[in-house]
Computed example of a mutant assay.
Amino acid sequence: MTHPRNFDDADPLLRRVRALALALPDAAEKISHGIPAFYTTKVFAYFGGSIKIDGEYHRHEHSILVLLDEEERTALTEDPRCYVPAYLGPSGWLGIDLTAETDWNEIAEFLDASYRLTAGPRRVARLDAR
């Protein structure tokens, strides 16, 4: 089944996320389920997500989904910008809304943390060597 494209390449938020994500060693981008996914051998971030409310999916088009360690994820679930995304939430992923005032240094840190959990030791070593 082909998923509809749920993003606009000209979106300035996507452009900022793309620049941060693709600056990580060996990072690439692909379209997965209609949204940009950033990966090495495994996906470390998505641009856009959704939540399920009363059986219906509600899109969060201007957000990122990242995989975080349990301690950091637990702390962020209290943050009003954050949500547990449909499908990926039970596996440790967290959505972060980018439509409010966004600290892009913090977003870069979230992308870095997610990358470190998925990229493997050689790529993480390359990142640390920068």
Rank of each mutant, 00 (worst) to 15 (best):
113 A>S: 13
99 T>A: 13
88 L>R: 13
129 A>S: 09
99 T>E: 15
114 S>R: 00
125 A>G: 06
125 A>D: 10
104 W>F: 01
100 A>G: 15
90 P>A: 02
88 L>I: 09
101 E>T: 14
104 W>D: 02
107 I>G: 01
90 P>M: 01
105 N>K: 11
88 L>G: 05
115 Y>W: 08
92 G>N: 05
108 A>Q: 09
105 N>A: 15
85 P>H: 11
92 G>T: 03
98 L>R: 02
112 D>Y: 12
114 S>E: 04
111 L>M: 02
108 A>C: 05
102 T>I: 02
88 L>D: 06
121 P>K: 12
88 L>K: 13
110 F>L: 15
86 A>W: 13
113 A>K: 12
87 Y>G: 03
89 G>W: 01
127 L>Y: 05
92 G>P: 00
94 L>C: 00
97 D>S: 10
121 P>L: 06
90 P>S: 03
112 D>C: 15
121 P>R: 09
122 R>N: 15
106 E>G: 14
126 R>K: 12
94 L>H: 00
89 G>Y: 05
126 R>T: 11
95 G>R: 08
87 Y>W: 09
122 R>I: 10
96 I>G: 04
118 T>F: 07
95 G>C: 04
112 D>G: 14
85 P>A: 09
116 R>W: 04
90 P>D: 00
121 P>F: 01
128 D>K: 06
89 G>P: 00
91 S>V: 02
88 L>S: 12
119 A>P: 13
85 P>W: 14
120 G>F: 08
91 S>P: 00
112 D>V: 15
129 A>V: 04
125 A>M: 07
88 L>H: 07
111 L>P: 07
93 W>N: 02
124 V>D: 08
122 R>P: 06
101 E>K: 15
118 T>Y: 07
92 G>F: 03
92 G>I: 00
123 R>I: 08
118 T>D: 04
103 D>F: 07
97 D>P: 09
85 P>M: 11
120 G>C: 12
99 T>Q: 15
116 R>T: 03
90 P>W: 03
123 R>S: 10
87 Y>V: 02
89 G>Q: 05
115 Y>M: 07
98 L>W: 06
90 P>E: 01
119 A>C: 12
121 P>S: 11
86 A>P: 07
101 E>P: 14
109 E>M: 15
97 D>L: 12
90 P>Q: 02
93 W>L: 09
107 I>S: 00
86 A>Y: 12
129 A>K: 12
108 A>F: 09
126 R>H: 09
128 D>S: 04
95 G>V: 09
107 I>Q: 02
117 L>Y: 04
90 P>Y: 06
118 T>R: 12
126 R>Y: 06
112 D>M: 14
118 T>K: 14
128 D>W: 02
102 T>L: 01
95 G>L: 08
108 A>M: 10
111 L>I: 10
88 L>C: 10
118 T>L: 06
128 D>H: 04
104 W>Q: 01
96 I>V: 14
112 D>I: 14
100 A>W: 14
93 W>Q: 02
126 R>V: 05
124 V>R: 08
126 R>W: 03
129 A>E: 12
110 F>Q: 10
107 I>K: 00
112 D>R: 15
114 S>P: 04
107 I>M: 05
104 W>P: 00
